[in-house]
Amino acid sequence: MVDLEPYRRELLLHCYRMLGSLTDAEDALQETMVAAWRGLEGFEGRSSLRTWLYRIATNQCLNARRRRPPEPVPPFTPPEPTRRGEVTWLQPYPDALLDVADSEPGPEARYHAREAVELAFVVALQHLPPRQTATLVLRDVLGFSATEVAAMLDTGETAVKGMLQRARATLGSPREPRRSSPAEEEVTRRFAESFTAGDVDGVVALLTDDAWLAMPPAPHEYVGPAAIAEFLRVSTAWRGERPLVLTPTRANTQPAFACRIDGNPAGLLVLTVTGDRVSAITRFLDGPLTLPQQLRLVSVRSPK
C-alpha cells in the first residue's frame, strides 16, 4: 500500500509558492491527492514517487485560476495610496506548517528553504509567468534536475533552461535568509507597543526610508514613512478608544501579530525586519478566524 500522507505538507508549501494563496494551495493539494490516488495503478516507477507527485501538483497549480478576491470596503476613507498592488490574493503561511516542509533539496537548489517562503519572494513569484514560476521553484528551490523538470512540464530541457534564465534575471541573485535575532525581537516589541498605543510617530520612527505597507486583499499600498504615517493616523482615529490586542505569532518565517479590536478579530500583521528597522508591514485584512483552516487550527505563539 503506497502512503501519500508523508508528502502532504511539502506539497502544500509547493502549491503555496506557486499560487501565493493558502486557500488556493489547499484546493490544489486536494486535487493533487485525488489525482494521485486515481493514478496509482498507472504509476510505473520511472521516477520516484515524490517526483511523480510534484509533477501532478505543479500541473494542478498551472491549471488553477487565481482567485482575485473582491476589494473590501474600508470602514473609513483611506488616504490616496502610493500605488495599487496586483497580488491581492496573497495570504500568509504559518510557520507551524514549516516544521516538516520540503525534503532535503537536490544539488540544483540555489535558495534556502527559509528565504523561499518569505512574503517578498512569494510575491515576486506571482509576477512571473506561471511556467517560469514552476521552473524556478522546481529547479532553484527544490533542486530537481533539468531532465526531471522537463518531464514534469512536458517540454524539452532547452526550454527549461530558457525559462529558468528569464526567471532568475527577473528575481535577481539569492541572498542569505533573514533569521530571528535580538535586534529583530527588540524592534518587534517596540512596534507592538507603539502600534497598540496608537503612537503613530513611534511606529514611523522604526521604519526604514523605503518602508511600505500593503493590505491584501485590498490593493492599497503606501510607500515611505510619510505615506504610512498618513494612513495610520486615519486608521488610528477610526479605532478611537477601542482596545487593540496584538498576539505574537510567526508567518512566512517573519514576526507577526494576530490583531483583535474590542475583542473582535481584526486581521494579521506580518513584519519584514531589516537590521533594526521595519522595512515592510503587510496587514492581512482577513482575521485569524476567517483565514484558511490550516492557519486557524495551529497555535503559533512566540516563545517567551
Rank of each mutant, 00 (worst) to 15 (best):
A256W: 02
F257W: 07
F257H: 11
F257G: 08
A258E: 06
A258W: 01
A258D: 02
C259T: 06
C259I: 04
C259D: 00
R260T: 04
I261N: 03
I261M: 10
I261L: 15
D262F: 13
D262A: 15
G263H: 09
G263I: 08
G263W: 05
N264Y: 10
N264L: 14
N264K: 15
N264R: 15
N264G: 05
P265Q: 10
P265G: 13
P265D: 05
A266D: 00
A266H: 11
A266R: 10
G267C: 07
G267N: 07
L268N: 06
L268M: 13
L268D: 01
L268C: 08
L269R: 11
L269S: 03
L269F: 00
L269V: 09
L269Q: 14
L271I: 06
L271P: 03
L271Y: 00
V273W: 00
V273N: 06
V273C: 06
V273I: 15
T274F: 01
T274W: 00
T274Y: 00
G275V: 12
G275H: 05
G275E: 12
D276Y: 02
D276Q: 09
D276C: 03
V278N: 04
V278D: 03
V278K: 01
S279N: 04
S279G: 09
S279Q: 03
S279D: 09
A280Y: 00
A280M: 03
A280F: 01
I281D: 02
I281W: 00
I281V: 15
T282W: 02
T282R: 12
R283S: 11
R283H: 15
R283V: 04
R283N: 14
R283F: 08
R283G: 03
F284H: 12
F284S: 11
F284L: 05
F284E: 08
F284Q: 10
F284T: 08
L285D: 12
L285K: 08
G287W: 06
G287P: 11
G287M: 07
G287N: 10
G287L: 06
P288T: 11
P288E: 05
P288L: 14
P288G: 09
L289Y: 06
L289D: 08
T290F: 03
T290D: 13
T290H: 12
T290W: 05
L291Y: 01
L291V: 13
L291H: 07
Q293A: 14
Q293P: 07
Q293L: 15
Q293E: 13
Q294H: 12
Q294D: 13
Q294P: 07
Q294E: 15
Q294Y: 06
L295S: 13
L295I: 13
